[in-house]
Simulated scan of single mutants.
Amino acid sequence: MVHPIGVSPSALGELLSVFEENFRSRGEIGASVSVWWRGEEVLSTGEGWCEKEQTRPWTEKALVPVYSATKGPASATLLLALDAKGLGPETLVREVWPAFPVEEATFAHLLSHQCGLSALDQRAMIWDHDAVAAALEAQVPAWRPGDGHGYHPRTFGSLVEEPVRRLTGKPLGQVWREEIAAPLGLEFWIGLPESEHPRVARLYPGKAAAEDLQDGFYKEFNTEGTLTRRSFASPAGLRSVQDVNDPQAWTYGLPAMGGVGTASALAKFYQAAIGAIESPLNDRVRQALGTLRISGEDRVLMKPTAFSCGCQLDPVDESGKKVRELYGPSLEAFGHPGAGGSHALGDPDSGVSFAYVMNQMELSVLPGRKSVDMVQALFS
């Protein structure tokens, strides 16, 4: 549990022990971890190297691409843009985007992966937003709201980008920076300026372990034509870690997977998302980010998942007990991981937020032991 006057020193000590163990035995190259509690950053550290050649020491100021950990900030941006127009999660998507292919879909459905648009039949490159939006408009949904859910790993970017552009006349990354990141002083970008490029650490791909390849997700992922494989290939492009190390991936501003920033910035964002600090995120936006919308077997990830409007929660079993604890013991905690191991969360019950970023990736589709062990230590 969290110490009544803050995060206990022993819990932070245990977390740091895990952090150090990741370097000793789990192949960590460079990493940062940040913990905030009720408006104060109680832990921020970074160690290791920005590349294997050990040219640049890693500090807590290192920037790193975080893949799908971008989805939380991107979703907050769309929710804030909707709110500014007097709209919200229950608004039909077609009120903003008339050609959206799912007539009955609300923004709550869209943000919680219920629209069945995770894979595209029409080829479009991830760098061409207009082409991806057109492909989405032409897509026959694989399922519809009310028929379950399935993670939209890549199409999610254009699904949130297009409404933001229609609502504001600006790219989502620009709205994020102007309305949320800059007011909060967050070193996190969805569209990184060239001036920050020298701070970006190099990513390294994970290696497959035997147990990884037995997972139901990887069987589907490695089978041609499955929904899982198609979902992780739609839209086309930006498939390899080498591609994500290209500055084009940092600057383009992809809301599903293109965020670049520090652990401290991500953890502070979740302080705002749980209402622990004053921020542009009002009660309506925060409630949407943290309120469960769908839970059950994920059609794409092939395991139980649970989503709010843009964030993940831990799913629970029939007795109400958590199936896993990626976000700590509280049923109210939420956040979002990123491919390879980055992880971030906020817990409204305790006022704690946490973020971890690194450059040695793992293959697990959900956060692995490097971050989960730290979360467990934090709430011990």
Rank of each mutant, 00 (worst) to 15 (best):
I274Q: 03
G275V: 06
A276K: 02
A276N: 00
I277H: 09
I277L: 07
S279M: 08
L281C: 01
N282D: 14
D283E: 15
D283S: 15
R284L: 11
V285K: 11
V285M: 09
Q287I: 06
Q287T: 13
A288E: 04
A288L: 08
L289H: 06
G290V: 00
T291K: 10
L292S: 05
L292C: 02
L292M: 12
R293L: 07
R293A: 04
S295V: 07
G296M: 07
E297I: 12
R299F: 13
V300D: 12
L301N: 13
M302K: 15
K303N: 12
T305H: 10
T305G: 02
T305P: 04
T305K: 06
T305Q: 13
F307N: 00
F307A: 01
S308I: 05
S308H: 10
C309S: 04
G310T: 11
G310A: 10
G310M: 12
C311K: 08
C311N: 14
C311A: 14
Q312C: 06
L313M: 11
L313F: 01
D314C: 06
D314F: 09
P315Y: 11
P315C: 11
V316L: 11
V316A: 08
V316G: 02
G320W: 09
G320H: 03
K322A: 04
V323L: 13
R324H: 07
R324G: 02
E325G: 05
E325V: 09
E325I: 03
L326S: 03
Y327D: 00
Y327C: 00
G328D: 01
L331F: 08
L331K: 14
E332H: 13
E332F: 10
E332G: 01
G335W: 09
P337L: 13
